[in-house]
């Protein structure tokens, strides 16, 4: 984690066990980012198993992983998909031609075609809020504080401390994308 020398590297820690599937993060994201009906920048996966009465149900919040080596940026023919110095992966809507290569290339199915703007879209880590010193909308609104957002390169950040003290994993590490959503175990 945080292998590159950068002043900041934004990342997110997710404590799925605390998630109650209440959709606060999903609706806050829709409101904050004006996401159209039917498409989502974040969502909650539900997994069910077992037989009555020994049942299990787990929830996992998902969104763009803001990878270190993002395949969406690699495949983009126009340079519309790009990455900031602090790791946040964005889409330049003016440069996006809506070819959807990136949607296929993303191992996390985090991108969608915006039917209103005819460009590809996805989670921005609420960059417009973060740049003002605020938290992403999903992080702030969460009733159970499932997500912790912060700078991976700041050893004093709660995010850094959590990763230093708690067992965690990333999704699909085999893709080599270097995802930056850390799920606590």
């Amino acid at each position: 984690m945080g292998t590159k020398t950068k002043t900041k590297r934004y990342a997110m820690v997710i404590d799925s066990k605390k998630c109650i599937d209440c959709k606060a993060c999903v609706v806050a994201c829709k409101a904050e980012n004006k996401v159209p009906e039917g498409v989502f920048r974040n969502w909650i996966s539900v997994e069910r198993s077992g037989d009555y009465p020994k049942l299990r149900m787990t929830f996992e919040p998902e969104q763009c992983h803001h990878c270190d080596e993002p395949s969406c940026v690699r495949v983009c023919p126009t340079g519309a998909s790009w990455q900031r110095e602090d790791g946040i992966v964005l889409v330049d809507y003016d440069a996006c031609i809506g070819c959807k290569y990136c949607i296929i290339a993303c191992p996390y199915e985090a991108r969608y075609h915006n039917p209103e703007t005819h460009t590809v879209d996805k989670c921005t880590f609420c960059v417009h809020r973060v740049d003002k010193g605020d938290l992403p909308a999903c992080v702030e609104t969460c009733p159970s504080k499932v997500r912790v957002f912060g700078d991976l390169n700041d050893p004093k950040s709660p995010l850094h401390q959590l990763l230093a003290t708690r067992r965690h994993e990333v999704k699909n590490p085999q893709t080599g994308n270097g995802p930056q959503l850390y799920y606590l175990l």
Binding site: C22, K23, A24, V27, A28, A31, E140, T141, P143
Partner: peptide
């Protein structure tokens, strides 16, 4: 507790 649920967010 410093939160706003899905419904609260949807009031708009």
């Amino acid at each position: 507790r410093a939160m706003l649920c899905a419904r609260g967010n949807a009031a708009i």
